[in-house]
Design a protein around this nucleic acid. Structure first.
Length: 278
DNA sequence: CCCGGAACCTGAAGGC
DNA sequence: TGCCTTCAGGTTCCGG
């Protein structure tokens, strides 16, 4: 499940091979993944376009093209990207190729996505796709004060609000759980009930968790792989995410799993005390 | 406007 | 063994 650290890793892995390249032939095997324009129009408009650079915004991958157009990908749940030479055989974990982007140096970029939930858009103005995203949590201008202002507008559980891309961009299920653990905040606390001290802890925890995960090349849950075929190692460093039944690395209490807004949520009941009243 | 839930998808896992 | 149900969770859409 690619979140900010996984997408950042993918962008950094791909940049050396993609920057300055031009697209050649495009094959869309699952047309519904192309949100705009149509799959057929994308197939006609992309060849010949040069990639000036690639970047990330939230969980989106952004290809800035020399024409001024922007190609934007989202991997959703099971998407991954793979850069390989044309004709080179596929790895075993890449049997769900939904799109093939040919490149002018004999390489090709493959969009692999078992559950077909990933998306592709080709637009003139990136705001059409990513215009509503909240701030980048690792951006230089993102402050604890801004986090406080944004959380104060929501009374939903803090876990759910952290996953809201219009509040903060790039945090999903795994890293929301991790950040709340390091901030010692229970996932069911109302977002607008956090004290200034708690918000400060959460702010620092978000930056720590995301930075560490980027350093680890992201988390390889199930069959997720980097574009190089390597696994990330962040899954070994999780304190609560996907650790239901195992013991807390800090206090040895069993990690619990509860649904929050229908999302599996892991936390330590001792390190993260429940909201008052329960 | 806000909130909760369904839909989009498929394969893994568990029950019988 | 095999059929069936449930679950996984990012985003969008829809109804109350």
């Amino acid at each position: 499940m690619p979140e900010l650290p996984e997408v950042e890793t993918i962008v950094n892995d791909l940049r050396p091979g993609l920057k300055g390249r031009s697209f050649t032939d495009i094959t869309i095997l699952w047309p519904r993944m192309v949100l705009r324009p149509s799959a057929e129009e994308l197939r006609q408009r992309l060849p010949g376009q040069t990639i000036q650079d690639i970047g990330r915004r939230g969980k989106y991958l952004i290809f800035r093209l020399a024409s001024g157009e922007v190609l934007i990908l989202h991997l959703r749940m099971t998407g991954s990207l793979l850069l390989k030479q044309k004709g080179e055989p596929l790895a075993k974990n890449s049997s769900y190729i939904r799109a093939v982007f040919g490149l002018d140096d004999g390489m090709e970029l493959l969009f692999n996505d078992r559950r077909k939930l990933g998306t592709v858009s080709l637009v003139k103005d990136e705001k059409e796709v990513i215009g509503k995203l909240g701030p980048e949590p690792l951006g230089a201008s993102f402050t604890a004060k801004e986090l406080a202002e944004r959380l104060s507008k929501h009374k939903a559980p803090i876990k759910a609000v952290l996953c809201d891309q219009e509040v903060i961009a790039g945090i999903g299920n795994m890293y929301a759980d991790e950040a709340l653990f390091f901030a010692n905040i229970h996932p069911l606390r109302a977002a607008n009930s956090l004290s200034p001290e708690e918000i400060e802890r959460l702010y620092r925890a978000i930056q720590k968790v995301l930075s560490k995960a980027i350093g680890n090349g992201g988390a390889s849950i199930s069959d997720y792989r980097r574009p190089t075929g390597e696994k990330g190692s962040q899954q070994n460093d999780f304190y609560v995410a996907h650790r239901g039944g195992q013991t807390c690395k800090v206090c040895a209490t069993p990690i619990e799993r509860i649904p929050v807004r229908n999302r599996g949520t892991y936390f330590c009941p001792r390190c993260q005390r429940p909201p008052t009243g329960s």
